[in-house]
Each structure stands twice: as structure tokens, then as C-alpha cells.
Design a protein around this nucleic acid. Sequence first.
DNA 1: GTTTTTATTAATGGATCCAATAAAGCCTAA
DNA 2: TTAGGCTTTATTGGATCCATTAATAAAAAC
Lengths: 248, 248
Amino acid sequence: MSTSCNYVITTLRQMILSGELPASARLAEIPTAEKLGVSRTPIRIAFRTLEQEGLLTKLPGRGYEVSSVSSADIEDALEVRGVLEGLAARQAAEKGLSESQQAELTQLLQAGDKLFTHDCLTETDLEHYHAMNRRFHQIIIEAAQNSAIQAALSRNEHLPFASVSALAFDKNNMAHETKRFAFAHQQHHHAVFAIMNGQGARAEGIMREHANATLGYTPSAPHRDSHERLTVINQTKYSYLIMRVKNR
Amino acid sequence: MSTSCNYVITTLRQMILSGELPASARLAEIPTAEKLGVSRTPIRIAFRTLEQEGLLTKLPGRGYEVSSVSSADIEDALEVRGVLEGLAARQAAEKGLSESQQAELTQLLQAGDKLFTHDCLTETDLEHYHAMNRRFHQIIIEAAQNSAIQAALSRNEHLPFASVSALAFDKNNMAHETKRFAFAHQQHHHAVFAIMNGQGARAEGIMREHANATLGYTPSAPHRDSHERLTVINQTKYSYLIMRVKNR
DNA sequence: GTTTTTATTAATGGATCCAATAAAGCCTAA
DNA sequence: TTAGGCTTTATTGGATCCATTAATAAAAAC
């Protein structure tokens, strides 16, 4: 699974997330191989990998198709993320944080505080917040010292709109979004306080609820087929910055 | 991923679980292909699949090795299973059971009650209990109508001693084990009662705690390297009946 | 005697080739 | 004209071949 394979997986993943390959689009091995200029071998491996990630669905005898992700699927995935990160926070509280974890979490919280002195975040601010947010969640999960949590989350990691690495925001309403992220940041503060004081159950509850902050407590999470559309911008290896845009 | 692939995956999985391939055993493509009488292609796919399942670990440039599963790994996996099945029970309570789910759960509980009129279960009884137990957990997860739970559990499903499909018991102490399973069966009763009466939080708590019943509330879960050894007997496609035996 | 460099071997990753199967379209018969 | 069967084509699954890389061992030099 070297260069060729990774190239195919990354390219296909991006094409799916960007909407270039829409839901229900059929993917056959030979046309895909020709389009990407590689042989069928890495394509096969990539298809299987993306199927595991939940981005592709196997059609018996007819190749694969791009999975349709409904808003219900996203809500389900967020519930699961909530209980798993809740468990991580509780175990982190029970096992205690290392010196370096305490230091880095404190530093991340301070960096966030500095960001939220402004009333309205810029897109650059958001990128900083996004990086900080990802690292924050990563530390909590590491601190749980529970390999099974990481494994169970791996599936969710690749579901674009439910991933820890996803951050959805409405570009046209940045003042409101700033308040939303400031609230999420307060949740981070409380979670760290609970963990550092050995309040496992409280930490668990906060992180479980915090999962709902990802899509912004919208009554029904918007998805590709609704009147609003979520678009992935600024995708790095495993992180998505998502912008909410109006259809047409 | 047709006959050949499935044959290789199934065979390797069984060889790992039975201990024929011990932890840390190295697996290279060519010798494995020759031993199983297939080409390298299905072997490659099988290795990747088993890596995803957590049974194999990739060695950079040196193929794969059989993953070592520590007792801590098993406890971790059980914690994760607990929160996920807890979530499933809560959502089942919130969404309600269908007529057929109610009927089947009731029937499964009655069948269990009948089993536990005896003071000491036979091995045949245990097989019946095992089948009943698996179906019970399956229905709860289906009733949650949350696809992400199933996906998140799939990794655990293949970890032999933490799977829903695993049932460990000590053959030399069947009277005690009978009491243990009778207690687990009581938990089933309470979980169903809670779900049917819309008590989501209670159902969640019961099922979360119930995950610990799998390995029998032992102070430290025994694993392959301890003085006691868990052996997989009676392995069907995705179910393991595990017997606790003394080493040597 | 030890260390470093080079050569050889083995093992993985990628490409192409072959076979088997399934689907679709066309032709024939009723 | 319609339905059923047959043929052809397309697509996946499996095998083999080729190249690249890494590791180990041996030889030479310090």
C-alpha cells in the first residue's frame, strides 16, 4: 500500500467529498484505472479500503457505488462519537493526565481564549481554531489509553460530516458562528477541568454532549441533498474544513 | 472477494484464534500462499482485511505478524462494547420496539428462564444459552436503528474474547458458571423491561454494565499468556464458544 | 579484530494476462 | 408482436511476471 495505492485512495476520497463523484455514482475498476493512470491492482485495494471507510458500497457483480450519506446517518455517527469520546474523557479522568498532556491542554485552551477575544472570527482564525480543536480531541483520546476507542472511531473518522476532524460553519453568518464556537470552547474548558479533578462522570457527560457542537445544534443536520449543501474546503490528509453554502 | 478470498480469510482467522498461529508469528505472502494453495492476490487482500479486524499487524517491509492481544486490550474492548450497546439500548428505548422484536425478545427470555430452572447447566445447555444470548444482543442493536453502532462494533466483533459472540466459561466449575449466566440473564430481563417502558437511561446503564458479564467479572481477565488459557471451541462463522482450560 | 561497504537474495508493490461469470442485446420461434 | 433462449461482451477475480527496495551476509579495509 505504497505511493500508488495512497494516491488512488486520497484522490478518490477527495473526489467523493468534493462532490465530483456524487452519491450513487457507479465506479468500475477499468475506467477508474485508466482515468487515474494506474493499473487495476491499486484500484482494487483502494475500493476495498474506501468500502471499509463507508464511502463506497459494493454492488454485487457491478463494482462499487458512492455511498449515500443521509442526515440520519450523520446524526447516528455523531451519537456514536459522543459516547466514545465520553468514554475517553472518563477514562482520562480515571487514569490521570501526564505532565505534558496537562501542559498542552492548558496551552491549547489559552490559545483558544485569545482567539475568542474578537467578536467575529475570520476564516484564518477558524483554521487556527480547527487545528486547536483537532489536537484537543486527539489528546483526550490518547489520555484514555484505550486502543479500542481509537479503533472504533476510525470508521467515523472518514465520514466527512461526523468526523472529529470536521468543522462545519456558515460563512454568511460568522458572528453567530463565532458565538457557537465560543460555546464549544467553553465546553472544552469544563471538560479539562473535570478531567484534571478526577470527575470522570462529569467529563463523560460534557464530551458526550459536546459531539453535538460539530454540526452546530441544527434541528436537522443539513446534508448534500437538502436545500443547503455542505462543501469540503481546505482538506488536508485527515482533516476537513467544511463550509455551508446555499445550493445554486 | 469471492471463494478464494473468503477461504483464506476464514482459514487464517481460525488458525489465529485456535492458537495454531501464535501471537507475534510472522506471516509473509509467498509462504502463506504456498501453504494454502492459492496465489498471492487473495493473500494480500486477506492480510489487509485481517489487519483491519485487528488480528494482524503490519511490519513495515517485513509482511505482517499476528497481533498480541493483552488482557488490557480485552478490557478496553469490553468498555467500548459496553458504551456502544448501552447507546443501542437507550436508542431502542427511545424509538420503541417493533411488534416482532417485542415478541422475539419475550420468547428468548422465556427460553432462558426454562434453561435456568436447572441448578447446573450442561454444555449443551450452554450452547443454547449462547445462541439465545447472541440473538438477544443482535435484536437490541437492530432496534436502535443506528447504522453507526453496527459499524463501530464491527472491529470488536472479530476480537475473539471481547466479541458479543464470545462466551467464556470454566468447564471445571459449571455450578458457579451457571450462577454467573443466570445473573447475566437477569440483566437481560431488566434491560428488556427498561426498553419496553421507555426507560432509556436505565436501559443504557444496564447494558453498559452487562458487557462485563462476558468474561465473568474476573479481577483480571485471563488471556493466552497467563497461567490460564482461553481456547476457542465450536467456532462457527461469527460465533465463538470459549472454554477456560488450564495450561499444560 | 572490528567496522564499513558492497553484493546478493528475498519479499513486497504494481502491471498484465487469463478465466469465469453475469448481464444485456439480438435473433428466432410461437 | 412478444417471449424465450442464445450469443456476445463487459467486468470482476485469480495468477503470474517484473521491478524496486530493504535486509543480511560476506568480504575488504582500517
